[in-house]
Design a protein around this nucleic acid. Structure first.
Length: 568
DNA sequence: GCCGTTTTCGGCCCGACTGTTTTCAGTCG
């Protein structure tokens, strides 16, 4: 699948055009990139059908560029732009607070081309002397460089998910492959992935390796052998494939799934029992006593089976030995999605389309929660528009059977903690989701205060993406999380696990904290198109990584019970 | 560069926030 590659090139073009000071072209490229990224189908197939222009935001010019990328792997237009402005735009933009104008100035005045140059300029206090910059901006750049560097080289789980599944599918369908499993952090459902580990069972390793290393997803071969090969995929991440004996498949899966620390702990337990655990199996002396399945290994070690999402050495080993692991929420336990957007604000589909898509997923209910007033960029609805939308929802509810559409909003918590919709109107809605979209740089006390005051509003049911972090983009804002948890319980205001690939907010660790303090949560997708509804799986994975069960969530409840719990 | 139940050409969701400013520019969403 080349979807991601196409999207990334289009985005890079947008960045370059931004720096050149173009006004509307970047927006056009970015819109097209966004559409391509959220496609669930291989873009090549769309091209073969001649339907590229059906993709929202793709017109004649961008269609041509997509075709060029699919045929040649690159875009001459982008290459020319890069020659014109020889700057590592992607990495510089990843530093928060640095945008196109700053890059342009720093390049022209200080010859800054990459993060290293930027760091040097900041450390030598050269930036503060430029017009429009001061001590504070220089300091902030330095602080944010560190964060940008750390998140480099890892890939967002939700974005590479379709690619990995597609790879697995191709292998499964290859005649000589008997078994195939993806291991590594992908299997643990970590929010970012460094590389992909694939295990296969086959009697014909040479043929399998030949097949795998010549797939069109492969950009280049790093090593190739009969038992292990490594390739670089077109998306830029490395992928290992290993041929495993069936009798060792379970122990190999255990070993290559990790985490490293979990493996070390389990080997210690084996030693204590006079056994030896390796990727080849569990051994008593020379004799293999387990290894074909993971379950068998756990059992022989006197442990309860630990789900991959829990294997982070965060106490799961001890609990497993005691036989007291929690029953995790299942991937089919969600009864409805409580945050999504439509054409009314910044989504791309209609209320009816979202409802039908929700119904196709087997949901009992969904909530439509478009942005409100003050968030103009996202097409925030004013009170008149909200009322009109409520009428539309009534109509769609009458038209479609088998799913209930709840009327909601994602109301904006402003910098003073007030909401930008009147209480009178909020009262009329079935559900109110509140969240922060502006003013992230206030003090910990102020940020906490804003969320607390939203929670104290008796109409607010859910705090969406509570910490505001964006993976690889932005740290969470400072919060007194204990205070928030306490208030959540006290006011029956539920925290969200936002399933959007770059959000996953609450994250696994905060989820665990929340449920340990007895808070209930909601897992929502924040979908901006019907395609995004599939992200629910990522939110559930995050919940599982946070040790959460079905009972810890509100949207595992049937509609009647949900309505009751939303009464506050 | 895209797009059209106010347009096939002329618009293109723009407000909050911060840090640098004496009235605004840049970034972010």
């Amino acid at each position: 699948m080349d979807n991601l590659k196409v999207a990334e090139i289009l985005e890079e073009i947008a960045d370059m055009l931004d720096i050149k000071g173009e006004k509307y072209k970047p927006r056009a490229y970015r819109r097209a990139a966004l559409s391509v990224r959220s496609l669930s189908e291989d873009i090549k197939k769309i091209k073969e059908r001649g339907e590229l222009k059906e993709i929202p935001g793709v017109g004649k010019a961008i269609e041509g560029k997509i075709e060029e990328i699919l045929e040649s792997g690159s875009s001459k237009y982008l290459d020319d732009l890069k020659q014109e402005i020889p700057v590592d735009v992607d990495s510089l933009l990843s530093v928060e607070g640095v945008g196109p104008k700053t890059i342009k100035t720093l390049h022209e005045k200080l010859k800054v081309k990459n993060i290293d140059d930027l760091e040097e300029a900041a450390k030598n206090n050269k930036i503060r002397d430029l017009g429009g910059f001061g001590k504070k901006s220089e300091q902030k750049i330095l602080e944010n460089i560190d964060f940008a560097r750390k998140s480099k080289g890892r890939f967002i789980l939700g974005y590479i998910e379709p690619i990995v599944k597609n790879l697995k599918n191709k292998l499964e369908n290859f005649q000589y492959v008997e078994k195939v499993e993806i291991a590594g952090s992908f299997r643990r459902r970590k929010e970012t992935i460094g590389d992909i580990d694939i295990l296969v069972v086959t009697k014909r390793p040479t043929e399998v390796m030949d097949f795998f290393t010549t797939l069109d997803d492969v950009d280049g071969i790093i090593v190739k052998g009969d038992s292990k090969s490594t390739v670089r995929l077109k998306e830029g991440l490395d992928c290992d494939i290993r041929v495993i004996d069936n009798k060792s498949f379970g122990s190999a899966l255990l070993y290559f799934t990790g985490s490293k620390q979990t493996n070390i702990e389990m080997r210690k337990i084996s030693i204590k029992k006079g056994l030896k655990l390796s990727e080849y199996g569990l051994f008593k002396g020379e004799m293999q006593i387990a290894g074909e399945t993971e379950e068998e290994v756990f059992q022989k070690l006197g442990m309860k089976y630990i789900e991959p999402e829990l294997r982070e050495n965060r106490g799961e080993i001890e609990v497993s030995l005691e036989g007291k692991l929690p029953k995790l929420i299942g991937y089919n336990d969600i009864k409805g999605d409580l945050q999504m957007h439509t054409k009314w604000s910044d989504g791309v589909n209609t209320v009816e389309q979202m409802a039908k898509a929700g119904k196709d997923l087997g949901y009992e209910y969904i909530a439509i929660t478009d942005h409100t007033g003050s968030l103009r960029i996202a097409g925030g609805l004013n009170e008149k528009e909200i009322k009109r939308q409520m009428k539309e929802i009534d109509k769609v509810n009458q038209k479609i059977n088998g799913i209930t559409i709840l009327k909601g909003v994602e109301v904006n918590i402003q910098s003073d903690g007030k909401l930008d919709v009147s209480n009178k109107l909020l009262e009329e809605l079935d559900i109110v989701v509140a969240s922060i979209h502006t003013g992230f740089r206030q003090t910990k006390e102020k940020m906490t205060g804003r969320i607390i005051s939203a929670m104290e509003n008796e109409n607010v049911n859910i705090i969406a993406h509570p910490t505001g972090r964006k993976i690889k983009e932005r740290k969470a804002y400072e919060l007194d999380f204990d205070k928030i948890l306490k208030k959540s319980k006290e006011t029956n205001t539920f925290l969200e696990i936002n399933s959007y690939p770059i959000r996953l907010d609450l994250n696994d660790i905060n989820t665990k904290r929340a449920i340990e303090s007895g808070c209930k949560l909601a897992i929502n997708t924040d979908a901006h198109s019907t395609n995004h509804l599939r992200y629910m799986e990522l939110g559930i994975a995050t919940a599982r990584r946070g040790w959460a069960g079905k009972k810890n969530m509100i949207n595992t409840l049937p509609l009647k019970k949900l309505r009751k719990i939303l009464e506050k």
